[in-house]
Design a protein around this nucleic acid. Structure first.
Lengths: 247, 247
DNA sequence: CCCGTAAATCAACATGGGTTAATCTCGGCC
DNA sequence: GGCCGAGATTAACCCATGTTGATTTACGGG
């Protein structure tokens, strides 16, 4: 297993050398798939656990008349299908939003590890709790925040999440997401997402080119978005970048 | 423990006589509190697990400028603080919306039970998964559904959930919730909630008096709301009423 | 270098839902 | 029986966001 999972889990708990080794030596197989492809085809109910290494994906729900709501983003470091692995309940459908690289870890290996190392189990649980908190925070955004606040909030959240796994620079990160997908994420129309992005640029809050978001001042954006990172439940400091966000 | 928890869990799995007995003989203590009171004061971090017996409560999040989003309803049969009990992470604040009666079950008793009876553990887990699915479905509502659809959807959901624990009649249930609270639930203004309720009445879809919602035709309301109960993951049939919904 | 397509942008107009501020209803209480 | 406060209801007006449809830009493939 690559380092990214360890980075992710270390946001929640500190680990001993032995625990770190256990994570890094999990057997895994790399899976790559192109943008806009359903994840189920490649991650079918075989019970493996997947960790995103690079690229974005999302879960979504469609209404019968074609409206779509994106339920969560799956970004590098995220562990997916943990729930299915534990409860057997299938999660909502997911698609890649960009080219995606992930690792499949046999569930038996995960099971073995968490049985021997309760702190790792706790960290994995913790990550599922945070995933829930994120959905709740999105509910707050859709229910209460204006378009400007919603976009700003999403950017703040992604910057923090991606920095936590070394996939963002100090003030910028790669966002391989289309404006139409942002619209389905935020409950807005494509046109209005575009307008609002323009406005954020005009306000000199962000820069967005070639899929790279750069934040002028995180503090200002955070204030604008009414963002407070507590719901992400991370320990204070974030580790140094794993590699350039432009990768 | 009263029968309501058993009713709730039986929506997910069938149980043996022994398992049923185990649930019913859980030690518990009744807690009553008035409307609009924070639950934390009475259910502080003592690690107990609580089951709502009668009345509604909700979890919510406030923004710094006073906007409030209700994150979920806690209704009869719901098990709360299960997550905290497992992970130690404190959930968002909660308040009672009506007079509330619940049972506190010592966590040790719950632990003992689920260790001996894996099917009960599975059912409890299942209920937490469903709680998550509900939040996701609310996200779909706030992101994609119109005001009319949102209210209709909420009513459909509550009817199904409450019927599942015997707290609703065939087509009606008690909704001890103010229009302002509905507004904070659905991301609408109080005025618009009122307008929309009027419209539902004018359309002859519902009746709402004295806090009792009566649905004219569940099928029609369901179609209007784009409601499909799959996300509630209940086994087909619902049991007969526990007692009148007007209680 | 040209084409074709997806994504972004823009303009013009429409509307669902927000805001404000009265007014009304009704149960509880003295 | 009148007062009071909470909640429900209305009306009038406004604006944030949606819709439609055209245009431009970016970019991979031939």
């Amino acid at each position: 297993m690559s380092e990214i999972l360890l980075r992710k889990l270390q946001n929640y708990l500190g680990f001993s050398e032995i625990e770190r080794k256990a994570v890094l030596s999990l057997p895994s197989q790399t899976i790559t798939l192109p943008a806009r492809q359903g994840l189920e085809e490649d991650t079918g109910g075989d019970g493996d656990v997947y960790v995103i290494e690079d690229g974005f994906a999302c879960r979504y729900r469609m209404l019968s008349d074609g409206r779509r709501q994106i339920l969560c983003y799956l970004v590098p470091g995220d562990v997916i299908d943990l729930r299915r692995f534990i409860t057997g309940a299938p999660p909502p459908p997911a698609v890649s939003m960009s080219q995606l690289r992930m690792r499949a870890i046999p569930s038996s290996a995960v099971l073995g590890m968490i049985e021997r190392m309760p702190r790792l189990m706790r960290a994995l649980w913790w990550s599922t709790i945070v995933d829930e908190s994120i959905v709740q925070e999105w509910l707050v955004s859709l229910g209460q925040r204006t378009a400007l606040e919603r976009i700003s909030h999403l950017f703040c959240e992604l910057l923090v999440r991606l920095k936590a796994v070394g996939m963002a620079e100090q003030d910028s990160f790669r966002l391989p997401v289309t404006q139409a997908e942002l619209a389905d994420t935020l409950g807005l129309s494509t046109v209005h997402v575009n307008r609002t992005l323009q406005e954020l640029r005009r306000m000199d809050q962000i820069t967005l080119q070639n899929g790279i978001v750069t934040v002028t001042s995180f503090e200002k954006l955070q204030a604008l978005a009414l963002f407070s990172p507590a719901y992400l439940q991370m320990r204070a400091a974030t580790p140094p970048p794993l590699r350039p966000a432009s990768a």
